[in-house]
Amino acid sequence: MDMTTFLQQMINGFSLGSMYALIAIGYTMVYGVLRLINFAHGDIMMVGAFLVYLAHAAGLGFPASVLVGIIGAILVGVLTDKIAYKPLREAPKISLLITAIGISFFLENLFNVLFGGVPKAFPAPDYLTKVLHPGDLYLPMTAIVIPIVTLLILAGVLWVLYRTKYGMAIRALAFDIPTVKLMGINADAIISLVFALGSGLAAVGGIFYAISYPSIDPLMGIIVGLKAFAAAVLGGIGSVTGAVLGGFILGFTEILVVAGFPELGGYKDAFAFFFLILVLLFRPTGIMGEDLDRSRF
C-alpha cells in the first residue's frame, strides 16, 4: 500500500469511526441511566432519517426538515417510554429488554408497511456531500462535519450531565431510583428527559448517517445499531467518552481489515466483533468502564 492510499484509508477510518461514535453516544446514555440496552435505538435513528425524507418530500427546506426529523424522533422516543417502558419500571430488567426488541421490530415493520422496503434516495444537500481534494487525497465534507458534530454533542451531553440540575437528577437516577423519588424528584419526568435526549441524539446520528450514505430503508437501523452497540460496549457501556472512543476503534478496525486484506473484506464484521470479544476478555467492562457497580458516565 502506498502512502496516498494509506492516508486515504486513515481518512476513511476516521470518517466511519466518527459516524459510529455519534450514534453510540445516545445508546450508552440511555444504558447509563436505566441499565436498558435500548435495542430500538437504531430504529429511532431510522425514524429520524425517514421523517427528514418525508418532510423534504412535502416541500420543506433541508434545515427545516432536519428539525422535523429530530423533534419527531424525540416524540416517538418519549411516547415509546410512556407506552411501553413505563409500565415495566418495577419489572425485571429482562422484561424491559424484550420489550425494547419488540419496539424495534414494531418500528421496522410499521415503516415497512407504510413506505415499503425499497430504499429511498435521501435528499442530502450538496454543501454536505461535496468532496474536498487536498493533493492526491479525497476528503468528504462529512468526514470534517461529523467529527465536529460528535465533539459538540459530546461536550453538550457532558455539560447537561455535570453542569445542570437535570443532569444531577439523571446521574442520581442512575444510582438509585427509589431514593431519588424519596428526595422529591419526579423520576418519570427525568426518565422521559433521558429518552428525549437519547432519541434526539439517535435522530442526529440517523440524519448524518443518511447524509453520508444517502439511501434509507426501514431496516437501515439494524446493522448500524448493532455496530453502535458494539462501540458502546467496547468503550465501556454507560461511559459517554468511552462510546466515542469505541466508535473510532471500531471504524478504524473495519477499514483496516478491508484495506489490508481485500480478499477478506467480506468478513470485516467478523473481525470487528472478534476484536470486541478480545477486548472484553481482558477488560470485561470495556476500555473506559471502571467497575460494574460504580461506572456511571
Partner: peptide, 22 residues
C-alpha cells in the same frame, strides 16, 4: 487486477474504493 468483497446491507465502501483506486 483485484477482487474486493462487500456485504449486502453495508453502506460504507470507502475502504474498497481506495483499494480499487490504487
Amino acid at each position: 487486477a483485484k477482487t474486493v468483497l462487500i456485504n449486502s446491507g453495508d453502506k460504507d465502501f470507502n475502504a474498497q474504493v481506495a483499494t480499487i483506486k490504487a
